[in-house]
Amino acid sequence: MTTTPERTRTPQGSAPVSLGLPRRLIEFDLDGDQVRVPEGATLLDACRDAGKDIPTLCYGDTLTPKNACRVCVVEVEGARTLAPACSRKAEPGMKVRTDTDRARHSRKLVLELLASSTDLSTTPHVAGWIREYGAEPDRFGPDAATVAGREAKVDNDLYVRDYAKCIMCYKCVDACGDQWQNTFAIAVAGRGFDNTIAVEHDGPLPDSACVYCGNCIEVCPTGALSFKSEYDMRAEGTWDEDAQTETTTVCAYCGVGCNLTLHVQDNEIVKVSSPHDNPITRGNLCIKGRFGYQHVQTRE
């Protein structure tokens, strides 16, 4: 059996940390090639290692896969249904096909269903996938039900909830809840096509438990959640990502040492994010790091 050692860390001056069992390597057939991934790796991990481009929307690199969007489905031989690559773990001997007609059909239809029912105008990569898969969202007709007409919720100075762009990926709920922030300000409400992300009684954000950490914005895959600054600039037509620089620095507010990435356009900070691979933040910040940057640009 091939093994690979677990990454370990020994804090200085303390007892050695148990190494645990070495992780086994799982060998399976991916599109006709034998590949090896560490035990516990998902099919998506294996695909990315092998340089295969599988579209994802609800998958988040800092979150437990929810596999709600189904755009990453692949075909596992012997299975009745397709499997979401983002969450299905690799098993020894399984035969996985990522590019079959069936898998491509499902991805194409998922893109069509989403694009016909949601405003994807600010969703990164999606226009390319729609072209690649030959998706035609318009074929459901002009009367196809859509949430794209929902009005944006602008109820505070920091960020905007534009649920016309929401694909119900659950990532904001997970980030707000037990996976990161433990604030539980938002949840999925309603059922079926009428479901939505809401605070209690679908009220305004300032009346809710929200602490404005903005970690929901960090994980939102469609731009449904955005900085008020970005929302306003888009409305004015001045938002220009190509003209922006990104500078990663350390937050000066406290001693934790969170990384901030300042998105700057025309010498103004327009947005703040945090690197997802930063071991302290994993992309998360608090209200000060995320939104407390105005003093930097007070020039008087």
């Binding site: 709600a68 755009v71 239809l109 998922v110 119900m168 059922r191 079926g192």
Partner: peptide, 8 residues
């Protein structure tokens, strides 16, 4: 309403 194929 959880997954796209069924919800939409």
């Amino acid at each position: 309403g959880q997954c796209v194929p069924c919800r939409v």
